[in-house]
Each structure stands twice: as structure tokens, then as C-alpha cells.
Design a protein around this nucleic acid. Structure first.
Lengths: 75, 75
DNA sequence: CTGTAGACTCAGGTCGACT
DNA sequence: TAGTCGACCTGAGTCTACA
């Protein structure tokens, strides 16, 4: 899949799996709800600090998040 | 250590270890030499795509790079 | 609950020149 | 070889509002 879409897909999967709305995730990660929406649709790419924030809320190591994204890219 | 400095330290360690100059790394990763300098000194934070580019050149998985950075932060 | 759009701020990233 | 400075441009991230 397109590299730009990989992180977004992983993010959405994990977020839904953990039963959070975009709004709740955004709130806890100190990010904007519309930005989460952009990320999930591959219209924005995260910075390292954003990845760290999000991983903290989703309770997965940031490294694992990146690992999943890399795996998606190869599909 | 300060979170802003973590990635830079990891980057410098791995780059030196693989015998590359900032300039050579920058060239191969399609980045600017001055930007690598800023990254290593913690004056700039990388985006995900930057991390992916760099990891490709340094021949370590991006996830491992992030893992090392996270570990540094806890020191 | 999510997508979208516009307008905005600031950090990421480039470039050239000098130390 | 690496640091720095200044000017510059793009893209990350916010906010308000509406479908």
C-alpha cells in the first residue's frame, strides 16, 4: 500500500480495537480531533513526538507502532 | 536525558558506528547536511518519513531506532 | 462520531556561505 | 568534517464551523 497511508491504517486499527473515539484519543494525547482524522486518512504524517504521544495512549510501544506501519507499506 | 536529545544521540551513535559522515548520510537519505547536524544536537525532531529514510541508510529497522530513542529518554 | 474546509501558527527541512 | 547563521518554503498541528 502507499507509504503515506500505512501509519493511518495502523492508527485506526489500534484505536478502534481499544474502543476509543477520535475525539477521546485526541483529548488524551493532547492533539486535535481533526488532526487524528487527517492522520488516519493518510493526509498528514506524524512526527516522532506525535507517535510517542499516541503510543502512550494506545498502550503499545512506539517502536511497535512503527513496526506495524513498515509492515503495511510492504503490502 | 531530555526527550528532545534522545533521537539525536541515537542517530549520532549509529552514524559514527557505520563510518558515515553527516554529509554522506544526508546525501544518501535525500536530506540536507545541516539538518542532520540539527537532528544530532536535538535542535530538530524527525518526522516519521525522515526516520524511515535514515533507518534505510543506516540499515537498522526504523522500529529499532525508535526503540533506542525511547530507551535513551528513560535514562 | 467523523469528514471536510479555510485560515492560521510554528516546527521540519533546504540552501548558500562562512568558521 | 562539523557547527552556525539567515533567509526561505513546506508540511505538521490547531481552531471554528458545518455537513
Amino acid at each position: 500500500m502507499r507509504p503515506e497511508d500505512a501509519f493511518g491504517k495502523v492508527l485506526r486499527d489500534l484505536r478502534v480495537k481499544s474502543g476509543l473515539s477520535q475525539e477521546k484519543l485526541a483529548l488524551e494525547a493532547n492533539l486535535d480531533r481533526t488532526f487524528i482524522s487527517l492522520l488516519e486518512r493518510g493526509l498528514r504524517q506524524p512526527s516522532l513526538v506525535t507517535i510517542l504521544e499516541i503510543s502512550k495512549i494506545l498502550k503499545v510501544p512506539a517502536a511497535h507502532l512503527v513496526e506495524l506501519a513498515e509492515a503495511e507499506m510492504k503490502k
